[in-house]
Amino acid sequence: MFPILEAEFLAPEIKRFVIEAPRVARKRRAGQFVIVRLHERGERIPLTIADGDPERGTITLIVQGVGKTTKLMNLLEAGDAILDLVGPLGSPSDVRRYGTVVVIGGGVGTAIAWPTARAMKQAGNRVVGIVGARSRQLVLLEPEMRAICDELEIVTDDGSSGRQGVVIDPLCERIMRGDRIDLVLAIGPVRMMQAVAEMTRPSGIRTIVSLNSLMVDGTGMCGGCRVSTRDGTRFACVDGPEFDAHAVDFDTLARRNRTYRDSEAAALEAFRADPNSA
């Protein structure tokens, strides 16, 4: 059992957890994730390690309630515990001194990008943050991002915070202007990451994305997380989750992520009807 020490909502449907997991806390590096199973009948889902405190033996997870398991997790409070938690999984981000790094976070992708953005800053990079959300109240980790970014742009669909538009807009302007960009890290919905990849492809700006493929074991055993890349088939849980955006076949990823859409919808509906049934 992995005790939850802190739990607080950062935004509607987005909750931050501090969980006791000493072995994971000691080893984790930016870009890695854990797989959790909440209860005896639960499924295994991957969640990025947003932060960790090796001394205290804790890790931080930030969860967006999108379906049954994440919504169930977001009902948990400090004092509750998670049945199974394994990690740190995946390869750590390749943190080096690149120069100027543009970090783009879409939705909960900001929480996934934040640990790497921070590591990039600590490695001596100039970090430009572009944080996108549907509306003001869904803008994640703004103070945390502000603290590590040399520049931060907020973009909302409805213009309720920052500028109105999508995260591609400020990126496009910077590229058109000829701003120096040595690396782009883009994490968010598949279609957002794909758009960023297309935007940076012509100028050959090195672009990294974190792929959210379906996972079960997280150790390279099932092959369910496989992604199609220019270099062949890769397993996101061990070879990734970060990949060169220009090598990724995003259409295939988007399609594979819909494999269980009917089951997922049914599970969510049943959960909505009776949250105690889980």
Partner: peptide, 17 residues
């Protein structure tokens, strides 16, 4: 693995599809 380890044959009583 979905069926044996995760009991997906008992979905939706078990969560793994």
């Amino acid at each position: 693995t979905r069926v044996n380890l995760m009991h997906a044959n008992e979905f939706p009583s078990y969560d793994e599809p």
